[in-house]
């Protein structure tokens, strides 16, 4: 556990010279990036630049694509997650994920939250865990009277918060969010962004977004990615969000945030 004054400086997860290939196609190229603990880091860039690929490389979700492989390192808890003796299943419990489209299980709201904890051997008070997770995801008040209704009966925004609650319930250290608000209306989007600000007290958040305003509003740090001439994604700039949007160092970043690219 870190001392409070270290928050904002301690590194939660770090990619070093990371490359991801799909078959012979290099999707991202030599990305090095340090994600700060209990901060929100946004990854932005035009579509197809490898943002999602980078995000999914951080908890080895890429491996679900049969032809995908990675080279380089991602250091988490002092270990390279691509080492042979790392267990991807355990890794994914520590680094949770929220997807672009809300994807609750076709089960009750309660089961949606409880399931992940149960398969990970949670032996504590399940009712309390579900309530706490739903409260942290700011969904409790809306669903406390219908915990046994299907998760699919909720609205899109509620479903996405349910997915966040589900991720929280397995006590991850990091939550990866892959354009979590892109399928939602503006009000639901706003609520997710507010929620993220509260969640960062307990969790490190990495969010991919194609919405620059969202990155500017909601994140502490921003990484900008861009395709090179081989269509491989590269990180061209990384810095504190305010600084990056006010005074971009890279010409392409400036073009992108002023709308000249993408």
């Amino acid at each position: 556990m870190s001392a409070p004054d270290a928050v904002g400086n301690e590194i939660a997860i770090q990619a070093q010279e990371l490359n991801v290939y799909y078959g012979s196609f290099r999707a991202i190229k030599d990305v090095s990036l340090a994600i700060k603990r209990h901060q929100i880091t946004a990854i932005i860039g035009p579509s197809g630049c490898g943002k999602s690929t980078l995000l999914r490389a951080l908890n080895r979700m890429n491996e679900l694509v049969p032809t995908a492989r990675a080279s380089g390192q991602v250091v988490f808890l002092g270990q390279n997650i691509y080492d042979r003796d790392i267990d991807p299943v355990e890794l994914r419990r520590r680094i949770g994920m929220v997807f672009q489209k809300p994807n609750p299980f076709p089960k009750s709201i309660f089961e949606n939250v409880a399931w992940g904890a149960r398969i990970n051997g949670f032996r504590g008070d399940m009712d309390a865990l579900v309530e706490q997770s739903l409260r942290r995801a700011a969904l409790w008040d809306e669903v406390k009277d219908k915990l046994h209704q299907s998760g699919l009966s909720l609205s899109g925004g509620q479903q996405q918060r349910l997915c966040i609650a589900r991720a929280i319930a397995v006590r991850p250290e990091i939550i990866l969010m892959d354009e979590p608000a892109s399928a939602l209306d503006p009000i639901a989007t706003l609520r997710i962004e507010e929620l993220m600000q509260h969640l960062k007290e307990n969790y490190t958040i990495v969010i991919v977004t194609h919405n620059m305003q969202q990155a500017a509003r909601a994140s502490d740090w921003t990484a900008v990615m861009m395709m090179d001439e081989d269509r491989a994604g590269q990180m061209i700039e990384f810095g504190e969000t305010q600084q990056l949007f006010m005074t971009p160092r890279d010409r392409r970043t400036e073009d992108y945030i002023t709308g000249r690219i993408g």
């Binding site: 908890n59 979700m61 679900l64 299943v89 355990e90 890794l91 994914r92 419990r93 520590r94 949770g96 994920m97 929220v98 997807f99 489209k101 994807n103 609750p104 299980f105 076709p106 399931w115 992940g116 398969i119 990970n120 997915c163 589900r166 991720a167 397995v170």
Partner: peptide, 20 residues
Amino acid sequence: SLRQASYGLGATKWQTVWYH
């Protein structure tokens, strides 16, 4: 998306298959 949600929570392959 159902499989991804399950893997994302740290489920094993068989847990994903059996429960979802």
